[in-house]
Amino acid sequence: MNVLLVDDSRLARTELRHLLQAFPDVTVVGEARHAAEARTRLQELRPDLLLLDIHMPGETGFELLASLEAAPHVIFTTAYDEYALRAFEVNALDYLLKPVQETRLAAALEKARAKLLAPALAETAAVPVSPVPDEPAPTLLTEHDQVFVKDGERCWFVRLSDIRLFEINGSYTRIYFEQHRPLIPRTLQHLEQRLDPKVFFRANRQQIINLKWIESIEPWFSNTLKIRLRGGPEVEVSRQQSVRFRELMSL
């Protein structure tokens, strides 16, 4: 996978080069300091992926993309979190906040690999058993990752470690963090596939809790458990999951 780095900060480009050395299948084919230089490099190098800053002298990263007839896949790298919604509106694969963490970079690169491999897999499939999915397989997120949450006109960019509870609400899932309770169009099954099981625990059919937000645990009816989370609420753990919880948390 050939990558072009576009950032006006030499230090930021150097740091990205260093992080990318951990991925043998990734080659940094060039760098650009601003949009005009990036356009030239894009024509010369034809990279598979852009690691693109937003704030640069002259034109922004968004303006660069808008000026291109065809663009490679894009992962934004920026020190500002307020552009997350716009980034996903222009179909960016991911949105990484500086300083970029290697775990987040690895997850973003996995999305790029999936996108790049999908056309080749579709062409070589002799007799497809089922339609090729539009989205790659979910990537496991760590508690340090930040996720984009939109509920109506309100948007947040929230760290998973700050989310204490996921709870089914009709066909949506309610997220509990700080004083906020937004709804997202995701099932608990989908979230369970993406969340780190060492941190997030399926307490029952309706709720997933963040283990690091547990304030107290007490025995409950029929050998079950009741857990109070810091900041609320109380969660009743099902009988089967109470057994799993005791096994998980015991020496």
Results as ranks from 00 to 15, higher is better:
208 I>F: 02
159 R>W: 00
73 H>E: 15
121 L>I: 11
41 R>Y: 01
65 L>T: 02
17 R>H: 13
230 R>P: 05
22 A>F: 01
201 F>A: 02
195 L>M: 09
185 P>H: 08
199 V>T: 14
134 D>A: 15
102 E>V: 14
119 P>N: 02
189 Q>H: 11
81 D>N: 15
199 V>D: 00
176 Y>D: 14
88 F>V: 01
38 A>Q: 00
167 E>R: 15
31 E>K: 02
249 M>C: 10
10 R>I: 14
66 A>G: 03
238 S>Y: 06
100 V>Q: 00
76 F>Q: 02
175 I>H: 08
159 R>I: 04
245 F>M: 13
47 P>C: 08
157 F>R: 13
88 F>S: 05
163 I>V: 15
11 L>I: 13
46 R>F: 10
170 G>Q: 11
154 R>Y: 11
168 I>Q: 13
191 L>M: 08
171 S>V: 11
206 Q>H: 12
198 K>T: 13
53 D>E: 10
38 A>S: 06
232 G>T: 06
132 V>H: 10
150 K>R: 15
41 R>Q: 15
233 P>W: 05
28 V>H: 09
22 A>P: 07
2 N>I: 01
146 Q>A: 12
197 P>E: 03
103 T>W: 00
86 R>V: 00
37 E>V: 01
100 V>C: 04
17 R>E: 13
51 L>G: 06
223 N>Q: 15
22 A>K: 10
65 L>M: 10
224 T>L: 09
54 I>E: 00
187 T>K: 08
135 E>M: 12
119 P>A: 02
102 E>T: 14
132 V>G: 06
244 R>I: 09
62 F>Y: 03
81 D>G: 06
121 L>Q: 15
111 K>V: 07
24 P>A: 08
43 Q>G: 14
95 Y>C: 04
109 L>G: 08
14 T>H: 08
217 I>C: 10
143 E>F: 03
230 R>G: 12
23 F>C: 06
248 L>T: 07
10 R>Y: 11
225 L>P: 09
147 V>M: 04
184 I>R: 11
234 E>Y: 11
129 V>I: 13
134 D>S: 14
42 L>D: 03
63 E>Y: 01
180 H>L: 10
246 R>H: 07
29 V>G: 01
90 V>M: 06
215 E>H: 09
190 H>S: 13
64 L>Q: 04
15 E>P: 02
90 V>S: 05
113 R>Y: 09
3 V>P: 04
161 S>C: 11
239 R>G: 00
127 V>K: 13
118 A>T: 03
138 P>M: 07
250 S>F: 05
140 L>P: 10
131 P>Y: 06
172 Y>A: 11
198 K>L: 14
86 R>P: 05
175 I>N: 06
122 A>M: 12
155 C>K: 14
17 R>F: 02
60 T>Q: 02
70 A>T: 15
141 L>I: 02
209 I>G: 06
249 M>N: 04
